[in-house]
Simulated assay, not measured.
Amino acid sequence: MDPVDVALCLAMDVSASVDFDEFGLMAGGTAAALRDPAVLAAATSGPRRAAAVCLLLWSGVGAQDLAVGWMRLDGPDGAAALAEAVENAPRLPPPGATAIGEGMAAGLALLGRFPAEARRLVLDVSGDGRHNAGRAPATMRDLAVQAGITVNGLAILNEEPDLLDHYAAEVIGGPGSFAMDCADYPDFTEAILRKLRRELGGTLVA
């Protein structure tokens, strides 16, 4: 793969609290965002005019699967191919605990092995519950910061209305990191659109 401005690992919660309809809303919402011209514009706004994106699904300890390997986002064809891959990604890990730290560890490993040169490395964690198994997310966050990797979060508040506080305190870190929330899964599309614009463009998009 040729060099990119940003390598972005989307790490998506598929624990027991996320049913199949909710997973469909996450995957479909992410695919819709990737088809939005504003996301492609953000991905191609840097000097290399390209980003790379992968999709990691996670639940409990030992339950992390790469659903979509690294794909280049550098034009309409790349955006369409990536959106289709995300939309059709199978829900690979079995439902289980909410091991945010373990999902983060798998995402950081993917970024550490990214097969090209990237100006920025970003881990995007989305989920609807607090960490309750495995390594603490704060430990993984600290390792990411030491490695120069940015960790951002998107908290879905349908089951835990104060989840954003957990993400802000325990999950996010690194250069320009931020946490966002959305009220429920039907709101995920709009939230992930804003998040991807901000992550890929590296600018403060409201």
Rank of each mutant, 00 (worst) to 15 (best):
P93T: 14
M71R: 15
A85G: 05
Q64P: 06
T30H: 05
E22K: 13
R130F: 05
G29R: 01
A89W: 03
E87P: 04
A191F: 09
D65P: 01
D13W: 08
R72A: 02
M71E: 12
A85H: 08
V53H: 00
Y185T: 12
G96K: 10
A50M: 00
V86Q: 09
L110P: 01
S177V: 03
E102D: 11
A106M: 04
E160L: 10
A38D: 13
L56H: 11
T30P: 05
L204C: 10
G173R: 03
F23H: 12
M1D: 11
A80K: 02
D124I: 01
C9W: 03
L25Q: 15
A83W: 03
L57F: 12
R49Q: 00
N152E: 13
V151R: 08
R49F: 00
M1A: 11
M26A: 13
V61D: 12
C182E: 09
R194W: 01
D13V: 04
S59C: 08
A67D: 11
D65R: 15
M12T: 15
D13P: 09
D124S: 08
V68W: 06
S59M: 09
V14W: 12
G127K: 05
L108R: 03
G174I: 06
R119W: 09
P137Q: 10
T139W: 01
G148L: 02
V151K: 11
G201S: 00
H131T: 06
P115Y: 08
R197I: 12
A155E: 14
Q146N: 12
L157A: 14
G201W: 00
R120M: 00
A136V: 05
H166M: 13
V171Q: 07
T98S: 04
V145N: 05
N132D: 15
L10E: 14
A81W: 05
T189P: 02
A16N: 11
D19P: 07
E190N: 11
M12V: 15
A168K: 07
L110Q: 05
G134I: 08
V61C: 14
A63L: 11
G202Q: 02
R130C: 15
P93M: 12
G29A: 08
L66P: 10
A85L: 06
Y167C: 11
M104I: 06
M140F: 04
N132S: 09
I192R: 05
L157C: 14
P115Q: 08
A169G: 12
L164D: 13
L40E: 05
P137I: 03
A136N: 09
S15M: 07
L25R: 15
P76S: 10
V68L: 09
L92E: 06
